[in-house]
Amino acid sequence: MDAFFAGLPLADVHQDLARNIKSIRVSQNLFDDLSDDPADWEIAQQHELATKPHTYESPNTIIDRPFEEADWLNAIKFPFRNWAASRFCDGSFGIWYGSDLVETTVHETVHHWRGFLAEAGFDELVPQGARESITSERKVYWVRCDAALLNLSARAAEYPDLVHPTSYPFTQQIGARLHRESHPGFVTRSARCVGVNYGVLNRNVLSSPRACCSLTYRLTRDGVVVEREAEQTWMVLA
Rank of each mutant, 00 (worst) to 15 (best):
M1Q: 12
F4W: 08
A6D: 15
P9Y: 01
L10P: 02
D12Q: 15
Q15V: 02
L17W: 00
L17P: 04
R19S: 02
I21G: 05
K22W: 03
S23W: 10
R25K: 12
S27D: 09
N29M: 05
F31E: 05
D33M: 12
L34E: 11
L34G: 06
D36C: 03
P38K: 06
D40Y: 01
A44L: 15
Q45T: 09
H47A: 15
E48S: 07
L49Y: 09
A50D: 12
T51L: 12
P53C: 06
Y56I: 06
Y56W: 15
S58R: 00
T61M: 13
I62T: 13
R65L: 13
P66N: 04
F67K: 05
F67I: 08
E69A: 13
W72A: 01
A75C: 04
K77H: 09
P79C: 04
F80T: 01
R81S: 14
N82T: 09
G91E: 09
F93C: 06
F93R: 01
G98A: 14
G98S: 14
S99Q: 00
S99N: 11
D100P: 00
D100Q: 10
D100M: 10
V102E: 12
V102G: 02
V102K: 01
F116M: 13
F116G: 09
A120W: 03
G121E: 08
F122A: 06
F122H: 10
P127R: 04
P127M: 01
Q128C: 08
G129N: 09
A130I: 04
I134A: 03
R138F: 04
R138M: 13
R138A: 01
K139L: 10
V140F: 01
Y141N: 05
C145Y: 03
A147N: 05
A148P: 07
N151G: 07
A154H: 07
A154S: 15
A156T: 15
A156K: 13
A156R: 11
A157M: 10
E158P: 00
E158M: 06
L162V: 01
P165K: 03
Y168H: 07
Y168T: 07
P169Y: 02
P169E: 06
F170I: 05
Q172I: 02
L178C: 11
E181M: 06
S182R: 12
S182H: 13
G185Y: 00
G185C: 00
F186C: 10
V187W: 04
V187I: 11
T188M: 10
Y198K: 07
V200F: 07
R203L: 14
R203C: 05
L206P: 01
S208E: 14
S208V: 04
R210F: 02
A211W: 00
A211G: 13
T216R: 15
T220L: 13
R221T: 11
V224D: 05
V225P: 01
E227F: 10
E227R: 02
Q232C: 12
T233S: 10
V236C: 11
